[in-house]
Amino acid sequence: MNKRRLKEKLIEWLFFVNGMIAVLVLVGIFILLVRNAFPGFKEVSFWEFLTTSRWNPDAYDKETYGFLAMLASTGMTTIGSLLIAVPLGVGTAAYLSDVASHRVREIAKPLIEILAGIPSVVIGFLGIVLVGPVLAKLTGTYNGLNAINGSILLAVMALPTIVSLSEDALNSVPRSYEEASLALGANKWQTVIKVKIPAAASGIIAACMLGMGRAIGETMTVLMATGNAPDFPQNLLSSVKTMTATIAIELGETAYFSTHFYMLFTVGLVLFIITFFINLISDIIFHKHMKMLK
C-alpha cells in the first residue's frame, strides 16, 4: 500500500516537473529575446524602428532599421491567407459536421489533418514551381513570387487547424439547438447558417485565430515564395519580405552581438509578443465558448 502511494507521488512529481519545464522554457525564451533585443537601441532610436519602413542593415552609406515594411508584409500575407482559409475552412467544417455522411467524414477529416504534417519547405517549393507560374499567367505579370503567392500557401497551411477545430466547435453545439430549429420549420441550410454557426461562433473564431498564429509565424514557405523585396508593399502583387523571412535570411550573416544581431532579436521579440497574444486571446475565447455551451 505504502509502495503504491510512493509510486503515485513520484509520478505526480514527474508530471509537475514536466509541466514546469515547458513553462520555464517559455519564460527563458522571453528573457533571452528581451536581453538580446535591448542593446540594439543604444545605436538605433526606438522611434525610428517603429515609424520608418526602410530596413537596410547592410547599407552602402548608412544603416537604417525601419520596421513598418516588414510588419505590413507580414500583415498582408497573413490577412490574405485568412481571407482564403476562413471561408473555405468554415465551409469545409460545416460540410463535415452537418452534410457529409459518416463514412465521408471518417475519411476526409484525417486526410485534412495530414495536410498539417507536410513540411513547410515542400509547400514553399510548390509555391515556386506551381503557384508562382500559374499566378504570373493569371495576373499577366512575369513573376509569381509575391504576397498573394505567400497568402495562398499560408492558407493551405492554416486550413487543417481551422477545419479541425471549427468542426469540433460545431459538433459541440447541443443537439437540442438543431432539433429546435428543425422543429420550427427551418430547413437544414438555414439551421446550419442561422443556428449552428452562430452558436459555435466563439469556437470558430478561436480556431481562425490559431490558424492566424500559424500563418504569422511561418518562415520557410514565405521566404521561398514571396520574392523578399524589402520595399513597403504596394498591393497584393508586390514582392514582400516578412518579419520571419528577415530573421531567417539575415541571422546567419551577422556577427554575434552587433547592432544588426540585436535588432533581429527585437524583430523576434515583436513576433513572439504578437503570436503570444493571438494564442492567448483565442484560448480565452475558446474557454468562453465551452462555458457558454454548458
Binding site: 552602402y60 552609406d61 513570387l145 523585396a229 524589402p230 520595399d231 514582392s239 519580405k241
Partner: peptide, 17 residues
C-alpha cells in the same frame, strides 16, 4: 554594390536565394 551601384539597391529588387 561596391563596383557597379556605388549606392543603395532599389528596395523593389527581389532578393533571390
Amino acid at each position: 554594390r561596391e563596383m557597379v551601384l556605388k549606392g543603395e539597391y532599389s528596395p523593389k529588387m527581389r532578393s533571390m536565394n
